[in-house]
Design a protein around this nucleic acid. Sequence first.
DNA 1: CCGTATCCAGTGGGATACTG
DNA 2: CAGTATCCCACTGGATACGG
Lengths: 123, 123
Amino acid sequence: MRYAYDVYEDRCPTRLVLDRLADKWALLILDRLEGGPVRFNHLRRDIKLISQKVLSQTLKKLERDGLVTRTVTPTVPVTVEYALTPLGRTLAETAAALTHWAEHNMDAILASQAAYDAARTAQ
Amino acid sequence: MRYAYDVYEDRCPTRLVLDRLADKWALLILDRLEGGPVRFNHLRRDIKLISQKVLSQTLKKLERDGLVTRTVTPTVPVTVEYALTPLGRTLAETAAALTHWAEHNMDAILASQAAYDAARTAQ
DNA sequence: CCGTATCCAGTGGGATACTG
DNA sequence: CAGTATCCCACTGGATACGG
């Protein structure tokens, strides 16, 4: 066992974080919030192709995890701002390393995929 | 637009990498392979709760992406070893930062979840 | 030992419509 | 503006059985 918790078991911190990032939208939201608080519909417009339902669900999960805050201002109509907590900010920064890796290595991955597919098609 | 590719669009490098890590097992496999080449059934035993089917599928995706190599030794019965490519190693190292974050902050997340649930239950 | 094939239940998430 | 409610389909992934 290389970790305090066994990464390869059912309940482990890596799985906990992975299951959060693995919902496909959370990292994008975290990243988008790094620039400061953002309103619901603003997020919706920025993160294209996300549905209202999924954005709502994901924000709720992130709030439950203590990664984002939800602030309601009782104007008419109401405005709601989402922002990173200090904890959320550290995760966003950590996750940004993945983003940078992805940008830097995407071409290599695409080339590998093409070669793999070509080899299988050629048979 | 803050990136060479737009992270919030459909096809972008972050989504590409995220969709790979988001299959829930890839990161665990990458991490497990950092110690050197591992055989199929060894991975299966180490990464508990993964099914043979999903392990096989995930390894194939990782191979297609050029992140792992698959080496067959024609013994009887056949032995197959999986290993990280140099590219895969850089991703594994980058992803390890997430693992460390998770270990370090899991307690805070669990506490936040408990507080969130308690607040909603108390109503 | 190292897989693939098949079947099947659970769920993630899109579309749409409605509310405070 | 910021959601919730409902329907529903497609895909994920587990269980099981079989093949090289």
